[in-house]
Design a binder for these strands. Structure first.
Lengths: 317, 317
DNA sequence: CCGCAAACTGTTAGCGCTATCATAGAGACC
DNA sequence: GGTCTCTATGATAGCGCTAACAGTTTGCGG
């Protein structure tokens, strides 16, 4: 018991025994068994973070936001990856919850019924992130992708572009990309316009794919005056392609992407984009978990919408 | 006990009771407590993966290799991030081990004495990855960065470049980058040459930094004929800068990076590089853990060196 | 030198599971 | 019916720790 007290810095132990214990622990190379500790104390200082992928820099950036907050606390993030598959997500959530974490941060608002039920019953704080267009299990932080799509479309129309093409990923289960697309398209429809053409990819180097898709869509349509890309990487590929081919940007054709990735700063021209505020979403989500665990007051807001702003860069007129 | 048997698919249970149990579990939304299970069975199906950072795509790519193997087993990866700090690494290793994982995969061979001792005493398989230039605690998979640096230098000299500049990160604790640099430089020294100039950065958009650094180093030295970048991102920035300024590549100046990132495929010209084989390192490491746990035979090799090959691309003559 | 509080250290039970062994029931066969 | 085997289920202990409380020592005022 005294050893336990020393190693957890809890309760009163004389300086002499404390040192004796620490010395012995060091000599023996003793590593406490957190499993037993967690079982006995019913406390697990882990926060599950469930994201669709690691290959898209967007998610590591959210992770960094989360870590920066949790580093100040005894909590530790544990990552689970779903590959955008609802069934895999369900399994990952189940696995996570079976370790009885202190909280859960999950990307997106769309889950299987079973997953949703598990989270509701888990009696731990759950924060859904990156999206606010829908119903959260408990709390959520993110941006409205619907609105982001609408806003981009509005900016584009305002600047006089009319013959617009869309380039995106072949991912029906990326709900956030879908919502942006829907928002974008609905503004066009309201303006009596429609998309002239579309182009989709899956897999491979996003930069190279952006290049290829841009070539393909421009070859099919010589009258397009704007290309809206579902993410900055393919947008960057398109930009490089246009510059190479001597297509004047934003004169002949305007370009815009989405996310506000760091990479943009290094391109020959700054791609128009909309920052998806990944870092801020991560920190806010982690803060919400921490606040919920302190549970001093239940007054914490349950839905935080962050408003991204359109950055025109150099690729729209 | 019967419930436990049903949920773990272990031991004989009649079909009738099995169904009864599953039905009840579903209705109650029962999520087993893995903590208790792990304590009782002394089995934890987690593999700790300890890497310096998530913001460098290199590490997520290793993760994907690891996941692809572990997905076929009951094992699950758990990530810990060290931020390139030895003390943080030591803490993360301690935390990991205190959960009694089934195995540990750690990036790099350089650790604090305490961390090394913990891993030696942990009596779980430990695989150090990404580097083989040094002594492993137990097993290791990776490439020799020394050799990679030497090989790149050899290729460059072979192609007639003589006035060489180096551009890298300001990270004394990135031992792999350091070893590449040392290997590179030793070949130059052996050839009676030296680096004409060097340039370092930290933080910010690597692409933008590559651009800035390239501008700076070329402004200082109008006679450089080759730029060796410590990673592809800054190399890509340099390439974009040169193309923009009308500097002929590889005529006036040759360029080479390191890592073989996907991004390269989308650039106007393919940057010379050397693939660091992240995916393969990840899969191999995970396979080694799995093999060690099956422990049928101890004959598994303890040190796997993967040989990356120089890809000349379009930026060396 | 006593009494009493504060400071320290120890005892006990139990967290929710699983390993192990024990028991019950169902057939098979003589 | 008795015995034996096999399958299915149950009882018990214990994993390594911590919460809660009990006991011991120390310090200090009177």
């Amino acid at each position: 018991m005294t050893v336990s007290r020393v190693l957890r810095n809890r309760g009163e132990v004389s300086e002499k025994t404390r040192e004796k214990v620490l010395k012995a622990a060091r000599e023996l190379g003793y590593v406490p068994n957190k499993i037993a500790g967690a079982l006995a104390s019913n406390r697990v200082n882990l926060v599950g973070v469930i994201i669709p992928s690691l290959s898209n820099m967007v998610f590591p950036e959210v992770m960094m936001g989360i870590s920066s907050v949790l580093d100040e606390t005894p909590l530790q993030p544990v990552v689970g990856v779903t590959g955008y598959e609802p069934e895999k997500e369900e399994r990952v959530i189940f696995e996570m919850l079976s370790w009885r974490p202190s909280g859960l941060i999950v990307a997106g608002l769309e889950h299987t019924d079973a997953a949703r039920k598990m989270m509701e019953n888990a009696s731990v704080p759950v924060v859904e992130i990156m999206d606010v267009d829908g119903d959260a299990v408990d709390a959520c932080v993110g941006i409205s992708h619907q609105r982001a799509g609408r806003q981009t479309a509005t900016e584009i129309l305002k600047r006089g572009y009319r013959r617009i093409g869309f380039l995106g990923t072949k991912m029906p289960l990326d709900h956030r990309a879908r919502k942006r697309f829907e928002g974008f398209q609905s503004v066009l429809t309201e303006a009596g316009l429609g998309l002239i053409d579309q182009e989709y990819y899956s897999g491979g180097s996003a930069l190279a794919k952006g290049r290829e898709m841009t070539e393909a869509i421009l070859n099919r349509n010589d009258d397009l005056d704007f290309l809206y890309y579902s993410n900055d990487m393919i947008g960057a590929g398109g930009l490089l392609y246009c510059l190479e081919k001597g297509i004047s940007v934003p004169g002949d054709v305007g370009l815009a992407g989405f996310n506000g990735v760091e990479l943009i700063d290094g391109l020959p021209r700054k791609l128009a984009t909309m920052d998806s505020c990944r870092g801020e979403i991560g920190t806010k989500a982690a803060q919400m978990i921490v606040a919920a665990l302190e549970k001093t007051k239940e007054a914490a807001p349950k839905r935080i919408e962050i408003s991204p702003i359109f950055a025109a860069g150099d690729t729209v007129r």
